[in-house]
Write a protein that binds this DNA or RNA. Sequence first.
DNA 1: TGGGTACGGTTTCGAAACGCAACCGAATTG
DNA 2: CAATTCGGTTGCGTTTCGAAACCGTACCCA
Lengths: 152, 152
Amino acid sequence: MVRKRFPDTHCSVARALNDVGDWWSLLVVKEAMLGTRRFVDFQQNLGIARNILCDRLARLLENGVLIKQDVGEHGTRYEYRLTEKGRDLFTVVTALRQWSDRWNGESDGPELVDRANGEPVRTVTVQSSDGRALDVRSVVYRDSSETDSAAG
Amino acid sequence: MVRKRFPDTHCSVARALNDVGDWWSLLVVKEAMLGTRRFVDFQQNLGIARNILCDRLARLLENGVLIKQDVGEHGTRYEYRLTEKGRDLFTVVTALRQWSDRWNGESDGPELVDRANGEPVRTVTVQSSDGRALDVRSVVYRDSSETDSAAG
DNA sequence: TGGGTACGGTTTCGAAACGCAACCGAATTG
DNA sequence: CAATTCGGTTGCGTTTCGAAACCGTACCCA
């Protein structure tokens, strides 16, 4: 049950999408970031079909985004938890969330605040070496062999 | 040809994925950020099937991520260009690219540098109101009605 | 000891999406 | 007039998805 993918592509973005590029994977990761750890909770909170959830969890395990722990307190219990690699998707998920809020209107979902002081987090941006916010037109994709390709 | 989606979900991430959540959409956007504008170039550079490209372009037009311009210089010519909404995905694409490079190894793809001084861009992070880098465990998803839900 | 329930799946099957290749119409080139 | 380019569209077979049913294990309770 493996979609045709591009494991050996030269493109980093495509390789990232190999791991989390389909519809549900990133939602599973986002749900895990909200604290969800158990199969049934993922299934109910996301409204995902069981077999699809099974497949996505397995793939995220393979890709090292999640780990599976047996916590056999009451019957068969497993916990799916984010690895360091999975937690590192926080930036991606947050950027995506903010983008959606900017362009598709604010959601009534939870607000993301700094645990230390309760203040909202900043808008995620790409920054230059000295901290200026950069948009796509203020950068260049420079190949190692050639210098070209205006972006935008 | 419309997959079951969640246009009225309360989740911002899911709503973002409605626009760019399938396998090819974000790759089309990324390709556009590299300067690609014409149908055949998208098709060849991405290796995408024509009908799928057609569908994705149409959807990205609908969603306001791309615009289509008739540039009838030599026969039938159109250009697909990013809108402001589309260009605003730069942060997401860059965060995804950096994540992939961190965890799946460096690619031999182009390097992203500041057009102004040629220096590489910073690692994209979520920042607190005073500029500290935040990971998923140092934030809280605070609902408007309740305060809960440790993240991680 | 036996029934009920929760959990974590797997199986089945129809529907949708995908990938490939062939075809198409308009315009440009030769 | 034929050949080519561009931007698609159409058919068709394969893959994936989604919903619901089913399954095995481990508890709970009596």
